[in-house]
Amino acid sequence: MSKDLLVELIDIEKVFLARKNFMNKVKPQKALSNIDLQIYPGETLGIVGETGSGKSTLGKIILGLERPTSGRLFIQGKEVLTSRTRSKIGSEYGFQMVFQDPAGSLNPQLRIEQVLAEALGTVESSPGSSRMVRLQQSLEEVELSKEFLNRYSGQMSGGQQQRVANARALLTKPRLLVLDEAVSALDAVTQSHLLRLLKKLQKKHNLTYIFISHDLEAVAEMSDRTVVMYQGRIVEQGESSTIYHRPKHPYTRGLKASIPIRDPRLAKTQRSLMRRDLLTNEEVPQHACPFVDRCPISDEAKCITATPQLTCVPEYSNHKVACHYYRDFDERFNQIGKG
């Protein structure tokens, strides 16, 4: 375990037991399987995937909000026991989170001053005190006027609320920030504004970011490294530019191809690379590639019987793919057709 690493996850698995219905059996859901991940200080790690890929769960496990069913978690070289009933990873290690829903993360009954002060451990601050000054500075940092201290969250726009959430997270002097779809609920202009702000803050405070999103473009732009997830597994990981410009896994290729083409003339030529879901989550066999029913190049032989493992791609450093046929993608695609 290199001490360079901020966080390391080894073979993490998370299974959710569904609520027992009155007469139905309990249905377990595997949210994460075989997750190995390293996070380096100061970097931005992007996690991209659809709903249900497990990316949010992964973020929560890093923060200690969820406990993995099995596997090991290391923070700064020391193992964190995952069996503790009360994990305070957030405050103990300086990890914080910014949520997807900006309004939901701020108590609507409190003034922003109180919302921010909570991060410092109090709720009331006397005007002029050093605490108050800190609160005002925190708002300035996210480019909000200190007038906002007296407002309620219901009186602000989504972008402003999200900035307050950021300010609050920063007040705890964190080391790592999990941004779980932090900009997804905002319009495009506000999004780019906020992302720029985030980058600025990262440099200033030397933060590590985990940027979770369904938007491949945003992830590629923000992160140094990217991890692509599908149904609880990592299917591809590597440098962001490589992932974006030269995706190897069929799913990543599919993601890239489904980024909307804005030019209306070219948009007509856009085609999806993925087939529609043919099997439900439960119907995919245990030891198969999770992408098998939507993959354009999958076959009955290997893809159904053996789960592909993450293997290194020889041409690039630190790039891994979990696919049996990624090398022959173009060939197989033209042969089999778009399914």
Partner: peptide
């Protein structure tokens, strides 16, 4: 959200 955030703050 704000309750979860509060927990995260310790």
């Amino acid at each position: 959200g704000f309750v979860i955030a509060s927990r995260l703050m310790g």
